[in-house]
Amino acid sequence: MKHALLFPAWSLMAITLSHSASAQSSFWTATETTLRGSRLSDLADTAYLLPWDLEALKMRETRTARQWWTDPDGRELTSSQVLLSPREDWMGSPPAPAEQLGSPPMRSSIPPEGVRLDEAMELGSGWTLTWRSATPQQVYSKGDSSIAFSWRPSGNRWSVAAEERIFSRSTLNGLCMQDWSLTERSTLVGYGPSGAESPPSLSLQPNPRGLQELQVSLEGSAGIWPTALRCVDSFGRLTAEQPPQGTLPLTWNPKGLTSGRYTIQIQLGNQTYASSFIQL
């Protein structure tokens, strides 16, 4: 009996260890845009809504740049930087991003092995999980509430493209409403443990450069914020640096450069991307 109970635990541990052992450096980044608000189940006269339900009908948009990476200990971490916040002016600036454990929403195959398509699996308390075939979707549902993840091909993997959440509720005066949110995620850029899948490429314009501003962009990474921007000469010496000035693409005008070859370095999380240009 004891062995019967321990068997799944050994199996689980074996899977965990193998997953841990295979953990290698990886870095992924994407921009997430979330629309959030309440909505009425049906179009209705809003005159009957209470003030706070009326306010909740407004759609609020949040945009964040999110990164996932593997640290030297093999842990998968994530952090997000708010690019557009629904905060009111009186709330001041948002807090600094914090790291937490987290793996990127990527899979090598969709759906998982052994799962039947278009068949609801009971999860308890009335919630079911269905993998849909028409659109690659993973849908949790219970009554009028649902959580749906839409998957799309991303290189030789699959990644979550959109997350839609609907939670039904009734207002204090008996109207039916839904708390709704939709998160759309840009294509994940980065590389995984099995090698580069969509390696980011740093682009500098113009090159060669005179006195003009440099246009710094990372292919496929518009909206991502760099944590540092540096300019080093051909000997690797730091000649100019500036703190983060916003999201990519950026313009920068490093001054006082003598003629020669320089390298611009961009730091994204624990990743450094570099590209060279000629200073005339």
Binding site: P8, I15, P112, E113, G114, M121, L123
Partner: peptide
């Protein structure tokens, strides 16, 4: 997803 072979654990 990782535990999908063991269906109970996955659920």
């Amino acid at each position: 997803w990782i535990l999908s072979p063991t269906l109970v654990g996955a659920l």
